[in-house]
Amino acid sequence: MSRTVLIIEDSATQARIIARMFAQQGCLTVVASSLAEARAQLDIRDFYLILADIFLGQDNILDHMAELRERARGTPIGIMSAGQRNDPVIIRTMLNKARREQADYLLPKPFSYVDVKQICTAIDQRALPDLSEQLAALRA
């Protein structure tokens, strides 16, 4: 699978910043500025990672986690806190909800290239079969 990341982010500036960081990791990026655009992209291709802002306009992406998981079976989902809400209590509440919704990765603002690199490394390691699987395949 190609390393294509679907970034669901309604702020063009935030999307450019995070896309640049993933490009440095050798990833291609597709930006969807709405849930409808994200649905359309998920209908036509598979992704290495779905990375979504918590607050998408007036919508909360966490309310749509089950749908994202259904549309992109097996694709890791990362949640960004891009800071559209200035209340730290709201951000903390949303990050806790992301954990409860079992987001695979959390990417808080301010975005850090080190965090992006760590996410890519973790996904790549998940994709590698473990040694016992490799040995079993060689014996077969």
Rank of each mutant, 00 (worst) to 15 (best):
Tyr105Leu: 02
Arg3Thr: 11
Ala38Ser: 04
Leu49Arg: 04
Ala82Ile: 00
Ile8Glu: 03
Asp63Asn: 12
Ser34Leu: 02
Arg139Leu: 13
Ala66Ile: 10
Gln41Glu: 13
Ser2Trp: 00
Arg85Lys: 12
Glu101Met: 11
Pro108Ser: 05
Met94Tyr: 11
Arg69Glu: 09
Ala38Met: 08
Asp59Gln: 13
Ser33Phe: 01
Val116Glu: 01
Tyr105Asn: 02
Thr121His: 11
Arg39Met: 09
Arg126Asp: 04
Ala36Gln: 15
Leu107Ala: 06
Met80Ser: 08
Lys117Phe: 10
Met1Ile: 03
Leu68Lys: 03
Pro88Arg: 09
Ala98Lys: 03
Ala19Phe: 08
Thr121Glu: 15
Gln118Gly: 08
Phe111Leu: 08
Thr4Ala: 09
Phe47Ala: 06
Thr121Gln: 14
Arg45Asn: 13
Asn86Asp: 14
Leu106His: 04
Glu133Phe: 00
Leu68Ser: 03
Asp43Lys: 14
Arg69Met: 04
Glu67Pro: 03
Leu6Val: 05
Gly78Ile: 06
Ser34Glu: 06
Leu128His: 08
Val116Ile: 12
Arg92Ser: 15
Thr75Lys: 07
Phe47Pro: 03
Glu67Ser: 12
Glu67Met: 15
Leu6Asn: 07
Ala38Val: 03
Thr29Phe: 00
Ser132Val: 01
Arg39Asn: 12
Ala140Trp: 06
Pro129Thr: 05
Arg139Trp: 07
Arg16Thr: 06
Ala19Met: 07
Leu62Ser: 08
Arg139Asn: 12
His64Trp: 10
Thr29Cys: 14
Ile91Met: 14
Lys109Ile: 02
Asp115Pro: 01
Phe22Ser: 06
Ser11Val: 00
Asp46Leu: 07
Val5Leu: 02
Val31Thr: 15
Gln58Lys: 13
Ser2Val: 03
Lys109Gly: 02
Gly74Arg: 11
Ala82Thr: 13
Ile7His: 00
Asp10Ile: 01
Gln41Trp: 03
Val89Thr: 13
Asp43Gln: 15
Asp46Ala: 12
Ile90Tyr: 15
Gly78Cys: 09
Tyr105Gln: 02
Ala82Gln: 02
Met1Glu: 00
Arg73Met: 12
Ile123Glu: 01
Asn96Ser: 13
Leu35Asn: 07
Ala122His: 05
Asp115Trp: 03
Leu128Glu: 13
Phe47Asp: 05
Ile44Asn: 12
Gln134Trp: 09
Arg71Asn: 09
Ala98Glu: 02
Arg99Pro: 00
Ala15His: 08
Leu95Ala: 05
Gln25Ile: 02
Ala19Ser: 15
Gly57Cys: 07
